[in-house]
Design a protein around this nucleic acid. Structure first.
Lengths: 159, 159
DNA sequence: GAGAACAACTTGAAGTTTCAAGTATTCCGG
DNA sequence: CCGGAATACTTGAAACTTCAAGTTGTTCTC
């Protein structure tokens, strides 16, 4: 751990505010999606990523990467969504250890129906009151943090 | 829902980056805290908030507010931490429906031992690579988003 | 071209969080 | 000061996520 310089005032303020967002935004999005569309925010993300892929199809591991989730988490969720008929799994024709996931027509319809409410929630919860300038700042900041997270994944923290 | 203007390019970029952070930062912090201190990041937050309060004591509802959690979630977690001897509950002397929570000496020691690893993780995962300018921007942005979240809590979304 | 590592999943159990009730206490209007 | 609302929690069940294996298939190395 070596030496650990404490957080300065700005950093502490940023950290507290960020934790507040972290802890509240997830539940808030889940609650909206659950109420309006009977799905989790993560369910929505999975279907949205599929809908944007060619053929509305992706390998599980690729889908996990694009939804920022573990393969295990994805596997459980996909099983649930498959049971609802919103997507279907099938073995990849080219690599037999790969499972591909495809959004069904029904799933696509459900996604389309859920989209406006989702976008409206994101607007209300995140972008309301932010200037265009701040939105650009947010892109830069969040991108840097994501890079930090990716780097730490590899080093399992602390190196 | 009224009309729903879609997200523009900057907003979409910000949203995707933010979701990435949202989905990865929580687990990353949990994993560090679990590995180094045998606790959840949320457990840490609870104990840290108590340690900063006068007498290291707070009512459950106040603690819930300061940790951005539901009372129910807090209640379950406090029960767990109490079983470990890290904190103790007792009825408030002044208001009989209030339960107060106090960090024990042992709990304080555990917290102090966990702090350096936690701070180091926050530094590594969040602040690494951010300029002081960006840290200040983050404060402003996160504060605005928090205000949005608070506002939506009251209106239960969509008004 | 075996066998060892590795990669892509799946699964069941354990831990966490939410959800829906339920209980006890305090507040407030008449 | 009575009764209905609101507040402050607690609890058990359901839903979700992680964790630790386990399976099957691919790739690499000698």
């Amino acid at each position: 751990m070596a030496e650990t310089p404490w957080l300065d005032d700005d950093e502490m303020a940023a950290w507290l505010a960020l934790v507040g967002v972290l802890l509240r935004l997830g539940p808030a999005l889940d609650s909206q999606a659950q109420r309006d569309a009977g799905m989790t925010h993560f369910d929505y993300q999975v279907m949205a990523m599929l809908s944007g892929a060619p053929e509305r199809r992706l390998a599980m591991s690729e889908l996990a990467a694009r939804t920022n989730s573990s393969l295990s988490r994805l596997s459980h969720v996909v099983k649930k969504l498959e049971a609802r008929g919103w997507l279907a799994r099938s073995p990849s024709p080219t690599n037999r250890r790969v499972t591909e996931c495809e959004l069904t027509t029904h799933g696509y319809d459900v996604l389309v129906a859920a989209a406006p409410g989702h976008v409206s929630a994101v607007r209300q919860l995140v972008f309301d009151g932010l200037s265009p300038e701040q939105v650009r700042q947010l892109v830069a900041i969040a991108t840097t943090v994501r890079a930090n997270l990716d780097a730490s994944d590899l080093r399992t923290l602390d190196g």
